[in-house]
């Protein structure tokens, strides 16, 4: 599989798509999020797997997003996500709150090709009261009263994440961040940015295979060096806390966000893989 360009990958994402994004501790493709802003994507629906971070806030700030389904949105140590908060208050996005294991469970149902899966807990939470698509039933295997939540399978249109590397066969390596595998399995398409493409086949290497997502699930790979920055990528590089803190400060206002975007999204095209 030959890598495509980052901008071509962004161009392949249609407006209105439901896109699954991992959060800042599990390999988000900040590079593709910025490319989606550059291409002027609109109407995106984002799914936080299972929560949302920096990339989600940037996409919301740029007006690319109409809906966010997530268990939380945060910039970690840098605090609340400013563009998410502003868009929620302005009513320009719909927020569908969930709880982490519910999102994992909905994706796992899609992964298995079953229509729903049960999950303990949640009953009595107002999250459930605002999720008409979630159902509570009596456990059919119990004679005693035992209510349990059923969650519908959720199959995102596109899984987007940043892997360390791809091989010549289109397999990608994510180490222990196996939620990227779940989301790739559950989604109709997976678009993966990587630090580098290497020769060989990870699946023939016993040590790399467990951290590999088979190319079966991967539609396209694009090289984006330091494509997770400012967040960390496994043992490749750490978080750039000062960059996130500067973003959090500037993105408090519309004008500050626009200025940040001009510099960091539209100004660093040379950083994009071309």
């Amino acid at each position: 599989m030959d890598p495509i360009s980052l901008e071509a990958m962004a161009a392949s994402v249609p407006d209105g798509a439901l896109i699954a994004l991992p959060p800042d501790n599990s390999l988000p493709s900040v590079a593709l999020a910025k490319a989606l802003v550059r291409r002027g994507a609109r109407g995106l629906r984002l799914l936080g797997v299972p929560v949302s971070g920096f990339a989600t806030d940037v996409l919301i700030g740029a007006g690319c997003v109409v809906e966010v389904q997530t268990s939380a949105v945060s910039l970690g140590e840098a605090g609340f996500a400013p563009r998410f908060s502003a868009a929620l208050k302005a009513g320009t996005i719909t927020v569908r709150d969930a709880t982490c294991p519910a999102i994992h469970t909905m994706l796992q149902a899609a992964e298995k090709g079953v229509p729903f899966m049960p999950l303990r807990g949640v009953i009595g939470s107002d999250i459930l009261a605002h999720r008409p698509d979630w159902r509570v039933i009596q456990n059919p295997f119990s004679d005693a009263p035992d209510e349990i939540l059923l969650l519908p399978a959720l199959s995102p249109h596109i899984a987007v994440f940043h892997a360390v590397m791809a091989d010549a066969e289109g397999n990608v390596w994510v180490g222990r961040r196996r939620e990227c595998a779940t989301v790739a399995h559950a989604s109709k398409r997976a678009l993966v940015t990587v630090e580098r493409v290497v020769a060989g086949n990870f699946l023939e290497d016993e040590r790399l295979a467990p951290g590999t997502i088979s190319g079966t699930y991967v539609e396209a790979v694009a090289i984006a060096e330091r494509g997770a920055q400012p967040v960390a990528l496994l043992d490749e590089y750490g978080v750039d806390a000062a960059y996130v803190a500067n973003y959090a400060r500037m993105a408090k206002t519309d004008a500050g966000f626009a200025e940040w975007c001009a510099e960091h999204v539209f100004g660093d095209l040379q950083a994009a893989a071309e």
Binding site: S71, D97, T99, L128
Partner: peptide
Amino acid sequence: PGTGVRFPGSFGSAFMYF
């Protein structure tokens, strides 16, 4: 979902607490 002050969200609390 938080028209006054919006907090980050529930994370896994709705499951872990049970």
